[in-house]
C-alpha cells in the first residue's frame, strides 16, 4: 500500500510525531511504500538546525533523517507554516533578508500542493495530530 503522512503536532507537547515515526518504521518493515511525509502547523517549529536537544533526550528530527537516508523518504515542510515560524531555507532567507537559514538539511520547503499530490498519489493519508 502507498501511504503518506500529515504531521500536525508540537514536538514539545504530546507524542504524535514519535507515534508517526514509529508508524513509518513499522509500515516500511511490512513492505508498504511511504510516498511522502508532510510537516504542517506547529511540527514545523522543531525542524530547525538551531535547536539544541539535551544529550539524554531523543532527537526526533535526526531520526527522520536517518529514516530518510535508509528508506529514501520524501520529507516536505509546509513553506507557509515554516516561514511564519522562522524556519527558513537559504532561498527564503535571501528572499526575506534574514540573518540565517536554519531548515535542517534533508527536509524540503514546499507548498500545500505537495499535500494535495500526496492525497492523489497515496492509497491512504494518515494524520498524526494533537
Amino acid at each position: 500500500m502507498i501511504i503518506s503522512l500529515l504531521i500536525y503536532a508540537s514536538q514539545n507537547s504530546g507524542q504524535a510525531e514519535q507515534t508517526a515515526l514509529r508508524f513509518t518504521r513499522s509500515a516500511l518493515a511490512q513492505g508498504h511504500k511511504i510516498h511522502r511525509v508532510f510537516f504542517y502547523g506547529e511540527t514545523v517549529s522543531g525542524i530547525s538546525s538551531l535547536k539544541v536537544i539535551p544529550r539524554d533526550e531523543i532527537d526526533i528530527t535526526g531520526q527522520w533523517l536517518d529514516l530518510a537516508e535508509s528508506d529514501d523518504l520524501d520529507l516536505v515542510v509546509c513553506i507557509a507554516a515554516a516561514v511564519r515560524r522562522g524556519v527558513l531555507d537559504q532561498q527564503e532567507c535571501d528572499r526575506h533578508n534574514r540573518v540565517a537559514a536554519n531548515l535542517v538539511a534533508g527536509f524540503n520547503l514546499s507548498g500545500l500542493g505537495q499535500l494535495a499530490d500526496a492525497i492523489l498519489s497515496s492509497d491512504r493519508l494518515l494524520t498524526f495530530g494533537n
Binding site: 507548498g111 500545500l112 500542493g113 499535500l115 494535495a116 499530490d117 492525497i119 492523489l120
Partner: peptide
C-alpha cells in the same frame, strides 16, 4: 483551497 486547486 490548495486541494481544490488540484481538482480534488
Amino acid at each position: 483551497l490548495a486541494c481544490s486547486a488540484f481538482d480534488i
